[in-house]
Write a protein that binds this DNA or RNA. Structure first.
Length: 262
DNA sequence: CCTATAGCCTGACGGC
DNA sequence: TGCCGTCAGGCTATAG
């Protein structure tokens, strides 16, 4: 699930359920997903604290703590958050469980343990250390920055869009969506784009991400003109009704419409 | 700098 | 029903 629009939704639900409540109990169920310190240190650093505000950067979510520092969340391929009241409602595959005072719980649910959680002192320093590019929906990421990110690249446009060091937030699904909306074939190479098409690609990228966020990153809500809900071999193209195809590009499954994307 | 590949993990799904 | 292969919305390390 978790690319930029999805993580934005997770941020909103975090904000709605889990701010300004002292954390009474921390249960780390999987040591494997803890980074920068041990499970014990993570639990110790959270217990008694409360979250004051969250910040999203690309696919990452940071929950700032009342006495400084932040909990950094990375959702991997299958991570999400669930808030619930009764212990009986704890979801399957809970890897980190927080119990707040006054009863409510927050679970980091992650069937495949490909994500990470950890404590960071300073979010900006962490982003720099990880060498993450600008968030793809931030003000700082304008068409000039996009152009600069692509300058001198030899590989595919898709790989560039998904490169978190160039721009943060786009993964396999949304890169497919952007290419579909831009009418570009998934194997299009960066040097094949002139200034005009780069500009159009940038506008498309912003439009796709904004629209996805506005519609709750929900495939059902984006049904109309989006490829998102048609990611299977032979599905019908939402634009031309032709057959969607699946090909392999650098080890990832790519869905596209051979008629619309040339 | 860039690509391709394997690996990390686990579950869902389809075919036999 | 059971077993097996394939696929899955991320990312890193490695080799070329």
């Amino acid at each position: 699930m978790p690319e930029l629009p999805d993580v934005e939704m997770l941020k909103r639900s975090f904000d709605a359920t889990s701010l300004h409540r002292p954390i009474a109990e921390v249960d780390v169920r999987s040591d494997a997903i803890v980074e920068r310190g041990s499970a014990g240190e993570l639990a110790g650093g959270l217990r008694g604290r409360s979250f004051e505000a969250t910040r999203r950067h690309g696919k990452r979510l940071f929950a700032g703590l009342d006495e400084g520092g932040a909990l950094a969340l990375h959702f991997g391929m299958t991570g999400s958050l669930r808030s619930f009241e009764s212990t009986d409602d704890e979801p399957r595959h809970t890897r980190l469980l927080l119990r707040f005072e006054r009863g409510s719980h927050l679970a980091l649910v992650m069937p495949r343990k490909l994500g990470k959680v950890g404590l960071v002192d300073d979010v900006d320093a962490f982003l720099e250390e990880q060498r993450l590019g600008p968030d793809a929906l931030s003000e700082a990421f304008d068409d000039a920055v996009f152009d600069a990110a692509l300058a001198g690249r030899r590989g595919s446009v898709k790989a560039a869009l998904m490169n978190q060091r160039l721009m943060a937030g786009i993964g396999n699904v949304y890169s497919d969506e952007i290419l579909f909306q831009a009418g570009l074939h998934p194997r299009t190479e960066v040097p094949a784009l002139d200034a005009d098409s780069r500009r159009r690609l940038f506008d498309t990228l912003r439009w796709v991400l904004c629209t996805a966020v506005d519609h709750g990153a929900d495939p059902a809500e984006l049904e109309g003109s989006f490829l998102l809900a048609h990611r299977s071999e032979g599905a019908s193209c939402p634009r031309c009704d032709g057959a969607i195809r699946r090909i392999e590009v650098s080890g990832r499954g790519v869905y596209y419409c051979p008629a619309c994307q040339t």
